[in-house]
Amino acid sequence: MLEAKLDAASQLKKIVEAIRDMLGECNIECNETGLALQSLDKSHIVLVSLLLGSDGFSEYRCDRGVTLGLNINSLATVLRCANNDDILTLRSEDRANELILTFEDSKADRISEFNLRLMDIDQEYLAIPETEYAATVVMSAAVLQRTLRDLSALSEAVTIEIDKEGIRFSAEGDLGKGSTHFKPCVDMENAENSINITLSEPVSLSFNLQYFSNITKASSLSSTVTLQMTAGMPAQIEYKLPSGHVRYYFAPKIED
């Protein structure tokens, strides 16, 4: 059986909000090390890979592997019934067909319980080899989100160029063009505003901005984001969690 407790329901609410626009139904695999999810969006443009280590829970118990086949939007609907600071417990018996969620306020004088029906989902998995990327950029998650939002007013695509001078985001559409360039920098007072670039060769890739904007909904999970890119390959975009990560593999636009 699975029994996992979080001190604040907001932790799971934010994670589900970060992935729900891209995923419909998917399996969450639970074992003694934690919860993991790997799922492609319908169009096969983005893969979401979520890892929630058992250390990230205030209490965690999973004796035997459990697969939770869930509709992510149903999970989001139920989680809306929890207050952000409620204590949240996830429970599922072995071979059960439901996930039980309980929400308690800190004084434990209100306890809500919801049972979510589980499904058998025949899911596709992607084998992603360990990769050395040509460029790695660590930057503020909020700054990335803002930059992409600004450029989405111009075009449905953004081009990202990374070289030793910095990282440049640009877009061009009917009304004109725009770009934002960030130089590598170290901000001693606000470390999350630093921009760190590790590079073996310069990279330029273009991406659909609608999908990118869905990915950056994970900005509420982490102050920084790590972008990893190699020419002609999908990008890896990672938001670190206290014990785990939300990672996206994002297929680029390819020149004809």
Partner: peptide, 14 residues
């Protein structure tokens, strides 16, 4: 002109 690629053209699906 650029086209959207899909992840299945880079990684193996199982």
């Amino acid at each position: 002109q650029s086209n959207q690629s899909t992840l299945s053209s880079f990684f193996k699906i199982s």
